[in-house]
Design a protein around this nucleic acid. Structure first.
Lengths: 355, 355
DNA sequence: TTCGGTTGTGCAATCGATTGTGCAGCCGCG
DNA sequence: CGCGGCTGCACAATCGATTGCACAACCGAA
């Protein structure tokens, strides 16, 4: 039990009186097709175990031009969605016998590109890019190196991508907000307001479309004033919420927070108000945060299906999807206080439609 | 701009009419010590850039027996503390020109060991293990392979380790709970209760010690009944909290939640109670959760200094700390609603002391 | 002119695996 | 007996870099 020096197939070959190629075949499982005698193979495998041998994957990788490494680039670890994604990615990669390499680039396009290059220098077998800051640059790099790659969450027109179905998610969320909303006598306050996000971005624009569709189907008319796409900065969102409340002379009956940041801003604002007022509101958040379920007032949430996103991405790889395939995955709706300790009145049954 | 095939130093050497060794020296910066003419080196570097050359790190790694990869094994990505750690680790590794490889093992000791072996097969240069399920086994493996390694958060007697100073953290947290606690006429309810954790584990036992020290310094006597180390299962913790409340005939004046799980259980329980009662309590959590700051009642929290933990761990590596060095890092106290946006009515002035 | 020292570069071994090919035995069949 | 075909393995090239060493060319000094 003291293999001080690294063991190689040459050491094994020497000890057992066979050739390195025989040892290699025995150990990597190709011995059958190389017509190595079963006994020989077995004894080699046994000896290798005793010696505590372990392949040098760099040597193998050099020879085979593959590495068994599979990369995932994402903006930050420190984020519910991306850490969920890391988790799913790790499980999936290991189930396939690959070694996941997950690197966060802090939303910096330069870091994104240089990380991609680094990973390519290690001959990674494929690259996943989640929430890319600059999809095109990364994609160009990968194409130049003929590296299979898939985008997740933030799509790229030049490469296979998997994203959440933002429109459907927003529609569902809006529907449940509407269905749990308490009517308010003042017309302007008897509405749902969509707060946060950037209408020029793909994701936000789809969500706004879903929001509009739900409102139109419900009350016939969604007004532009109901959509406040003020970006993702919590402070800006907070200011907008305060302004809105002033305009309306009080809180609206429904609020659609278009990101966890906005929701946080909302909490900061709502924290100062009497609890009864909050309980009267219907709040939805397009993002998932477990603590949302533990608040003292109901919050409906939408969560991206990280497991599915990763699975679909792998499928695209397996199919060698080449062009600009775009796969969408429906998100999951977390209705407020479903089976939780809160037994508070659910006005009607629409929440049941959440798959 | 279409380097379809991978470029090698041989290609460059051929194109420029030099030898591969010269190219190698020029590109990896050792050309000076190999007395390569500066002009030659520069033109090689320039050509390499034009050709879009990138080293094959597997080849380099094979030759040099190093890889530039540095591993971090942790229980799960999906956790505030560990994702903070991932973040800091990534930054630190990249600042040192290394490539971080972070793998989550789902708290499974087998996965931990096999992951360590996999990483070693890639010739990683060093290994960090955070929150190890079975430190000794991993450490033995590393020692056998002469792989530098450091434990974080969960120490190992056989290897250098960096952990949070649980005792000091618990003392500070208890002190602030005490100082913001409203006196209660009933003696049993005029106390802080410590809930959760396993007294047999290193971390919990140090925290209990800190808790006791603070109580003793403040009121002279900490009773055993104040310590309910019922494990980390939220359901069990919830049951204990309920039982305690029954025993006391109401909520105690202070609570020390010894993990985020316990805190979550607490929230589930408190969610059903009238808000005024909560605001009367003084609650502390030995873990950090940003949403804790957004709740409608004050919560003091303690947060591990992930950045420092990683830095100290790297320092131990740099010093080639061999034996059982144990470094501790003081955690950070997040007093409830210090400089936050809450200006709302605090029942009395004790909260003001919550510096 | 010869010699020692410096410059600048090339040669070839090496890291540890994989893999195409060669070939010695042996068997059975005609 | 001869030959084709199978079995079971070894040889050696190869992947792409790094690195110890050899060596030619040149220069100045003796």
């Amino acid at each position: 039990m003291k293999p001080t020096q690294k063991q190689t197939i040459y050491d094994i070959a020497h000890k057992i009186g066979a050739s390195p190629s025989t040892v290699s075949a025995a150990l990597n499982g190709t011995w059958r097709s190389r017509r190595i005698n079963e006994k020989t193979a077995e004894s080699i495998i046994e000896l290798a175990r005793q010696m505590g041998y372990s392949v040098n994957l760099q040597a193998r990788g050099l020879r085979t031009a593959r590495s068994g490494l599979i990369g995932l680039i994402l903006p930050e670890h420190n984020n519910r969605f991306f850490s969920d994604l890391s988790q799913s990615f790790t499980l999936e990669a290991r189930a396939r016998g690959q070694c996941p390499v997950i690197i966060a680039t802090q939303r910096d396009p330069e870091a994104e590109v240089s990380t991609a290059q680094d990973l390519m220098a290690y001959s990674i077998d494929a690259l996943f890019i989640a929430g890319a800051a600059d999809p095109m640059r990364v994609s160009r790099l990968c194409h130049a190196a003929q590296l299979p790659h898939v985008f997740i969450d933030q799509p790229c027109p030049d490469a296979p991508s998997v994203i959440t179905d933002n429109e459907v998610g927003a529609r569902r969320l809006t529907e449940i907000i509407l269905s749990t909303m308490r009517p308010h006598p003042q017309p302007d306050r008897n509405k749902v307001y969509f707060i946060g996000g950037d209408a020029r971005l793909h994701a936000s624009s789809r969500r706004i479309a879903g929001f509009r569709a739900a409102i139109n189907a419900h009350s016939g008319q969604c007004e532009d004033s109901q959509i406040i796409a003020c970006g993702y900065d919590p402070d800006v969102a907070l200011a907008e919420i305060i302004a809105l409340t002033h305009r309306l002379g009080g809180l609206p009956a429904g609020l659609f927070a278009n990101s966890i940041n906005v929701f946080e801003a909302l909490l900061r604002f709502l924290g100062e108000l009497p609890e009864a007022e909050l309980r009267a509101m219907s709040i939805g958040c397009f993002d998932y945060e477990p603590y949302g379920e533990l608040l003292r007032f109901p919050v409906h949430m939408v969560r991206q299906r990280h497991r599915q996103l990763v699975r679909r991405a792998y499928e695209l790889l397996d199919q060698r999807a080449n062009g600009n395939v775009l796969v969408t995955v429906e998100p999951e709706l977390y209705p407020a206080h479903g089976p939780g300790p809160f037994k508070g009145a659910e006005p009607d049954a629409t929440a049941g439609s959440a798959q």
